[in-house]
Amino acid sequence: MAVPLDYETLRIIWWALMGVLLIGFALTDGFDLGAAALLPFVARSDEERRLVINTIGATWEGNQVWFILGGGAIFAAWPLVYAVSFSGFYLAMFLVLAALILRPVGFKYRSKHHDPKWRSRWDWALFIGGFVPALVFGVAVGNVLLGAPFRLDSDLRSFYEGGLLGLFTPFSLLTGLLSVAMLVLHGAGWLSLKLEPGPVLNRARLYGRIAAPIAILLFLGGGAFVAWGSLGFRLEGLIDPAGPSNPHLIKAVAAPGAWLDNFTAHPWMMAAPVLGLIGPLIAMLGITVRRDLLVFAGSSLANIGIIATVGLSMFPFILPSSIDPASSLTAWNASSSQPTLFLMLIVTIIFLPLVLAYTAWAYRVMFGRITTEQIRFNPDYY
Rank of each mutant, 00 (worst) to 15 (best):
V295K: 05
P320F: 08
V81Q: 07
V96N: 03
M344T: 03
D155S: 15
L329M: 05
S172H: 05
L152Y: 00
A252I: 04
L277R: 02
L167M: 15
V200N: 01
D292M: 11
G311H: 02
F127W: 11
I23N: 04
V295T: 14
P170V: 11
Y160T: 08
A227T: 09
L294I: 10
T55F: 03
P280Y: 05
A283D: 04
G24Q: 11
D115P: 10
I210E: 07
A148R: 08
A224I: 14
I278Y: 00
F233L: 08
V274C: 13
L343M: 14
F89L: 15
I375E: 01
M270A: 13
W60Q: 04
W66P: 09
T9A: 15
D46L: 12
G311N: 09
P325R: 01
W361K: 12
L97N: 00
L164G: 10
F377N: 15
G19K: 00
V136A: 09
I346P: 06
S85C: 03
L329F: 08
P4F: 03
T264S: 14
T340W: 13
I375W: 01
K108W: 13
K112D: 12
F168V: 00
E161G: 06
L319S: 00
P316R: 04
P379H: 10
S154P: 02
V42T: 03
I346E: 11
A362G: 03
F317G: 11
R205G: 09
R291G: 02
A37L: 06
S335P: 10
L341I: 03
R50D: 14
R44H: 15
I282W: 08
I350C: 09
I307Y: 00
M1W: 12
G62R: 03
R291N: 09
G232Y: 12
F137T: 13
G279S: 06
A360H: 14
T28D: 11
F131N: 06
G176I: 07
F31E: 05
G311Q: 02
I304R: 07
R376G: 05
A255Q: 10
R151C: 10
W268F: 10
I56H: 07
S327V: 03
L206S: 11
N202T: 05
D153K: 07
P256N: 04
L69Y: 13
F86C: 01
L206T: 07
R11L: 02
A99G: 01
G311T: 11
M314W: 09
W118N: 10
L238I: 14
R369H: 04
P104A: 00
W66L: 12
R234H: 12
V3L: 05
F31S: 10
L51H: 08
V289G: 00
R151S: 15
P320W: 01
R291T: 00
F31D: 09
H266D: 03
R121M: 12
N262H: 13
T359A: 10
F233H: 07
P353H: 05
I68G: 12
S321A: 12
P247M: 12
A258S: 15
L164R: 06
F342E: 09
Y109D: 06
A334K: 04
F168C: 02
